[in-house]
Amino acid sequence: MPQGNLNLTILIGANTPRPAPTKLTEAIDSLMIIYRDSGRSGFQIVFRVGRSTPADLQDDPLLRGSEEQLLLPFNRVIVTMTLNSQPRVLLDGIITFHEFAPSLELGESIFTITGEDVGVMMDLEEKSIEHPELNDKTIVETLITQYGKYGLVPKLSTPQWSERPLNTERVPVQLGTDLAYIQELANRHGFVFYIKPGAVTGQNIAYWGSPDRAAVPSKPLTFNMGSFTNVDTINFQYDGLAATKVVGQVQDRKTNQIQAVSQTSSQRSLFSREPALTTQSHIRTTQFRQSARLATQASAYAQAKVDQSIDRVITATGEVDTLTYGDLLQAGGTVDLRGVGYTYDGRYYVNEVTHEIRQGDYKQRFVMTREGVGTTRSSVNV
Rank of each mutant, 00 (worst) to 15 (best):
Q308R: 14
L323M: 13
Q303C: 04
T354M: 08
T324Y: 03
A292C: 05
D321T: 10
D327C: 05
D345K: 03
Q330P: 14
Y325P: 14
E352I: 01
Q303E: 03
V313D: 01
A304C: 12
D307Y: 11
Y349F: 15
D336S: 08
L323A: 11
V306T: 13
D345I: 02
T322L: 13
G360Y: 09
Q359H: 11
D307I: 07
G318T: 10
A292R: 14
A316Y: 04
A316V: 00
A298E: 01
T296W: 00
A316R: 02
A300W: 02
G332S: 12
R312G: 05
K305M: 15
A292Y: 12
Y325V: 03
I314V: 11
D307T: 09
I314P: 02
T334R: 06
T296N: 15
I314K: 00
Q308A: 14
R293K: 15
I314F: 01
G332K: 00
T296V: 01
L337F: 09
Y342C: 00
F288I: 06
D345Q: 09
A298N: 09
Y349N: 03
L329W: 02
D307F: 00
T343D: 12
R312P: 01
E352M: 10
I310F: 04
T334Q: 07
R293D: 11
Y362C: 08
D361G: 14
L328D: 05
E319P: 04
D311Q: 13
R338F: 09
Y344F: 14
Q308C: 14
Y348S: 07
V306K: 07
V306Y: 06
